[in-house]
Structure formats: structure tokens, C-alpha cells
Design a binder for these strands. Structure first.
Lengths: 189, 189
DNA sequence: GAGCGCAATTGCCATTTGGCAAGAAATGCG
DNA sequence: CGCATTTCTTGCCAAATGGCAATTGCGCTC
């Protein structure tokens, strides 16, 4: 629980009373491996802070093949931000790829906190643009690298993540086939 | 000038007085082809709304080769958002690839507008996360497509842009060499 | 209009990656 | 423990892409 407060405090100041209010509002939630935190077509009614576990944000093509857009892990918020903010149906799935523990805020509670804590919105503005900008930088860098560089780059940035993610999901994140990833791993070791 | 107001109005309501204030604050600016709106190492002191022309946001590697991250064109804001917001040095260049006409706001004027127009910050929050989220979706889709699909996809989304951008910049945006792009174009026609 | 410089195309060949299918390894379950 | 299922690896070949260099095309200047 303190981790959430620490994380938020990186983006704005919170006094003791505000911290207590946040802690009192957050609701623990468990999601088992393979279950979804959000599904395409639904409106996101919750934003979650990951205490433990790894999610992937993905979508499916016409043939039912899945494509991993990115991973979300400990000490990060997991949410389809556009769906949550504008209460529009989402186009993506958010799938737990390990058993996960979250602290969640409902949309209503989130608005209530926004009304009671002056810096609340500002904190989430900063988190949103900081995280999105980073992801975008990372992803557009990937585009000009070959598959092996992308994999090494991933290991470099997310060393603890690699062995918690099924390789075929990692492959689809890297934009290559499982076979290619396998060959690259063999080639490196 | 009305285009700016129309664009902003898509993201939040503005009354007549607020519109006038915005129009009175915006400063026209011309940037010739090849010049920079922002350069790596500098702090962004301006945010610009593109009235006419095309920019590219790019960076350079150790060898001096440039990589195009994305293009910005008419009726969009052009800015290194993190540099502008936090007044930190930028890592990117923003280069005019045609003669460009902008409406710019200085950081000081921007803050002043933020103090006088209650919905101002909210509008820019929405624009930021909307635009970033879209770019991210577009970019991570590209990763799982081959070069030809990426090119066709680009033509599909930005039909008017293709013939205003040098092909080698488009190639670096698509993550391929100019030769490959040339072959793909030949192959399609 | 001739010459210059940059952009774009093309050819040749090496390398990377994909597609497919078979086999090996890991995991889950009774 | 043994079986079934899923995941991962590997081999083979085809297709895509890159690297490099030569050529062509285009706009600009003189």
C-alpha cells in the first residue's frame, strides 16, 4: 500500500490526510492467471495499481491471433486510459499472465478523490503523459532495430520481466514469430 | 486562427471571452524548410499549432544518421511535450520539412492562459493523452506488419502527406531503407 | 542550356526473418 | 507416476529486407 503512495508522490505532493484518504479508498483485488482485467467492447470502470504480477495489453486480429502491445507489472497503473477517462468501449484486452494482486479505484471513487485532492488530476496527467511518451519512444526505437537488437533491448530495460512472460507473448510484443525468438535466444547464448 | 479555436473546442468548451484571449495571445511564426522548431539539448519554450506545413520529429544516432519518429502537419500541435512541460532539455529535433506557418504560445503565455481559463489544462491533458495513445497504437501496429503493409497503412491514414515528405524520411519513419521503400513502391504500382 | 548536388531507383548478393512441420521439453492433471 | 496438452526448439526452404555501388532523375544555379 505504501508503494502506491510512494509512486504517486513521485508526481506530486500529498499530505498525511490525503494519503489516508487514498489508502482508505483503494480496494485490493486478485486476478488469477489467464483472467482479464479489461476486455474489448467493455467500458473500463476501474483503474488498477499492480502490487504483484504481470499483465499484457493486447488485441486480436480477424483470425483470432493475438498481438501484445505492452506489458504492465509491479508498481505501475494498469488501465485502458481512454476507455476509463471517457467511458468509451475499449478495443483491447488486459490479460493477467501471472496471478496478480491489485489495488483498484472505481471510476466513481476516482472522481471523488479528484474532487477532494487538489493535486490528484495533475498527478495523473503527469503519469499518463510520462508513461505514454516513454512507451512511444521505446516502441518507435524498436522499429529501426532488427529482431535481435529489440530482444537485447528488452532484456536490458526489463531484466526481471523476461522469465515471467511466455515466449510467444514476448515474440508478438517484439513483432517476430516464436521461432525467430527461439533462434535469437539460441544465437546469443 | 479559427482552426485553432475549433481544434481546442473538440476537447473542451470555450466561451467567447476565452476565445478572444487565446486569439490575442497566439503569435504567428514562420519557419522555413530545413530549419528547426526545437533542437536536442535545448529547453522547449514554445508550443506551436501548425497552420501550414509539415514537421518531422527525429533524433540522431552516434554516427549522425537521423531517425524520424513521426510527422506533424496542419491542425495539430507540435511540441516536445516533456521538455515544454517540465522545462527539461529535449533529446529530439523538430525539423520543418516544408516551409511552415505556426501559431505559437510561449511557456509564460501558456501558463497565463492556464490561470485565466479554467478548462485550459484539461483540454491539453486530453489532447496529450489522445494524441500519444493514437501514436502508440499506430506505432505498435506497425511493428507486426511487414514493410509493404506499413507503407500502405501510412498511405491509408495520411494520404495527403505522402507526396510532401522526402522518401528517405518516410523510409526512416517506416523503419526501412530508402532502397526497400523504392522497391515496394515499384512493386505496388 | 550545361553543370552541379541531392534524391530516388535499380541490380547484385548476403543476411534476416517467416512459414511450416516435426520433435523435444515443460506443464498440468488425474 | 503416466498421459495429454501446451510451449518451445529446430530444420528446411522461400520470401523479405539490407548493404553497397552504379545509375537515373530532378531541381537549382550560373
Amino acid at each position: 500500500m505504501n508503494e502506491l503512495i510512494d509512486y504517486l508522490s513521485q508526481f506530486g505532493q500529498l499530505d498525511a490526510q490525503q494519503r489516508e484518504l487514498i489508502q482508505a479508498t483503494a480496494i485490493p483485488k486478485r486476478i488469477p492467471k489467464g483472467a482479464y482485467f479489461a476486455e474489448a467492447g467493455n467500458v473500463s470502470t476501474q483503474i488498477g495499481y499492480v502490487m504483484d504480477g504481470v499483465f499484457r495489453v493486447c488485441y486480436y486480429d480477424k483470425r483470432g491471433d493475438s498481438f501484445t502491445r505492452y506489458f504492465v507489472y509491479e508498481n505501475r497503473f494498469v488501465v485502458d486510459i481512454n476507455s476509463f477517462r471517457d467511458q468509451m468501449p475499449s478495443a483491447e484486452y488486459i490479460e493477467a499472465i501471472t496471478d496478480c494482486t491489485l489495488l483498484v479505484f472505481s471510476k466513481e471513487d476516482f472522481i471523488r478523490l479528484s474532487e477532494r485532492i487538489p493535486g490528484w488530476d495533475d498527478i495523473f496527467v503527469k503519469i499518463t503523459s510520462y508513461v505514454l511518451e516513454n512507451k512511444l519512444r521505446f516502441t518507435s526505437n524498436m522499429l529501426v532495430q532488427d529482431a535481435q537488437q529489440r530482444y537485447l533491448n528488452f532484456l536490458d530495460h526489463y531484466p526481471k520481466l523476461a522469465n515471467r512472460i511466455p515466449l510467444h507473448m514476448l515474440a508478438s510484443y517484439l513483432g517476430i514469430t516464436p521461432s525467430s525468438l527461439s533462434r535469437i535466444r539460441k544465437n546469443i547464448s
